[in-house]
Amino acid sequence: MNTEKKIRVLVAKPGLDGHERGARVIAYGLRDLGFEVIYTGLRQTPEEIVSAAIQEDVNVVGLSILSGAHLTLTRKIIEKLREQNANDILVIVGGIIPDKDVPELNKMGVMGVFTSGTSIKDVGAFIKSNLS
């Protein structure tokens, strides 16, 4: 009896990285697939991202990072989510991520990594299959 349920996704850009196009493509794309996307814009601190994720009660946090600082930023965010007992939130990362860093991200708890050329349909399907 729960027809109104929507999957809520926070799309966030941590750090000083100003490459916004990928995050926007993903945000609009997920909206068009029926997700409710909260977009918080550029230059977010890990604290801001985690508090937004909790207040908005999102199912997914999607980080867009093209600065090269994906390992440290992601680690910080996941640690803070854990501090808040919010590690049930699915974390995915996209942007410029060298293949060699993917295992490390996975070890931190990142479920999916999406680099350039990612199709939005794949992201949508990944989220749906990992939440159910």
């Binding site: 929507k6 909206r31 997700f35 508090s51």
Partner: peptide
């Protein structure tokens, strides 16, 4: 919400960065 997909892009929070981490402030989109 988009009338076609039922999805939505919630962007108001973008302008509320500075207050988003104040302890006694709670924002819900």
């Amino acid at each position: 919400s988009s009338p076609f997909s039922g999805g939505a892009l919630l962007g108001d929070r973008l302008r509320m960065k500075e207050v988003s981490t104040i302890d006694d402030v709670f924002i819900r989109s």
